[in-house]
């Protein structure tokens, strides 16, 4: 199994004469193609899940880590003054890149999923939120809390770590499960192809015996089977991958409201990833059939 390119091309181009030596089998061929297609289809989703949760974990881990929220809970008449004071403090805090009080519209948008549209935010005792963006170095949260406590009594700093950490852990775990699923799907594919190949080899025992008798080398006999199963797995997996990618493409795209669900799918160059599934499928089939053929041939004289 050397990754020799010319050998690979010759292998795929095939030997028409060698192909004819093994009788064609319509039904098992279709089963193999179906199994490969189904497995590729599932792999596309496992891959989409892994990549999407990977993206979420990265985003929560990175983007949100650099953002924090300051909540000003003060009586209505003091809110504007305390907000201005807090912004002054933040402007002079080293490590804070930007600080901005959310507008009424933005606050309303945040509450909309819970209270519906047209909430009269202004007339409600809703705390004012200030979005704080850190620079790369980050700020000293403890120091900032002390200063705020002194100058803006109604301010509460939330640096997101409290709820961010379990989410990142969950996303990481999901990503791991996704890759584990892909591994399991690959192993199951190998098992199925091995069984199909074993069945084909057993069914063609007489053919193999005749070929051995007339001086065919093991590699030649195995090649006839290996090529067949590799091509079946390749075509099946290609079909399954295309269908899987279409299904992912046609997933209803969740807007910003859906938060967590956003982007279960592929983004940008990640669309290249599923394209390796047929190649992986073919490689798995190649290895599995090669193993099965050599095991079977060794037992023959």
């Amino acid at each position: 199994m050397k990754p020799d390119l010319t050998a690979m091309t010759a292998f795929l181009a095939g030997d028409a004469q060698a192909d004819r030596l093994v009788p064609p089998t319509g039904f098992t061929a279709r089963l193999t193609i179906f199994a490969a297609a189904a497995m590729a289809f599932l792999t596309v989703f496992a891959m989409a899940l892994s990549l999407a949760t990977g993206r979420l974990a990265d985003r929560w881990g990175d983007e949100l880590a650099r953002a924090s929220t300051l909540r000003i809970s003060a009586p209505m008449d003091q809110r504007a003054a305390q907000t201005a004071a807090a912004l002054r403090v933040l402007e002079t805090t080293p490590g804070v890149a930007a600080a901005r009080a959310l507008s009424e519209d933005e606050q309303r948008a945040l509450l909309e999923p819970w209270f519906g549209p047209d909430l009269p935010v202004a007339s409600l005792p809703i705390p004012q939120l200030i979005e704080v963006i850190e620079d790369d170095a980050g700020y000293d949260a403890a120091g900032l809390r002390l200063r705020l406590a002194a100058e803006v009594p109604g301010a509460v700093l939330d640096d997101h770590t409290r709820w961010r950490r379990p989410l990142v852990t969950a996303a990481d775990r999901l990503r791991l499960l996704g890759w584990l699923s892909i591994g399991l799907i690959g192993a199951a594919t190998a098992a199925m192809i091995t069984m199909a190949a074993q069945a084909a080899l057993a069914a063609n025992a007489q053919v193999i015996a005749v070929l051995r008798l007339v001086g065919a080398r093991d590699a030649y006999i195995a090649g006839a089977f290996v090529r067949r199963f590799t091509l079946r797995a390749l075509s099946g997996a290609a079909l399954g991958t295309v269908l899987g990618m279409l299904a992912v493409l046609l997933l209803p795209s969740a807007q910003a409201e859906a938060g967590f669900l956003t982007g279960l799918g592929f983004q940008g160059w990640h669309w290249v990833w599923p394209l390796i599934i047929p190649i992986l499928g073919a490689a798995v089939a190649y290895a599995a059939t090669w193993q099965a053929a050599h095991r079977t041939l060794k037992e023959l004289s």
């Binding site: 004469q17 060698a18 004819r20 030596l21 009788p23 064609p24 007489q206 053919v207 015996a209 005749v210 070929l211 008798l213 007339v214 001086g215 065919a216 080398r217 030649y220």
Partner: peptide, 20 residues
């Protein structure tokens, strides 16, 4: 005598040539 039953006689006779 065993042949490849799905191939015509001419191919069966030529089998040693094919596999070599």
């Amino acid at each position: 005598v065993q042949f490849l039953e799905h191939l015509p006689v001419a191919d069966n006779v030529a089998l040693p040539l094919i596999v070599s």
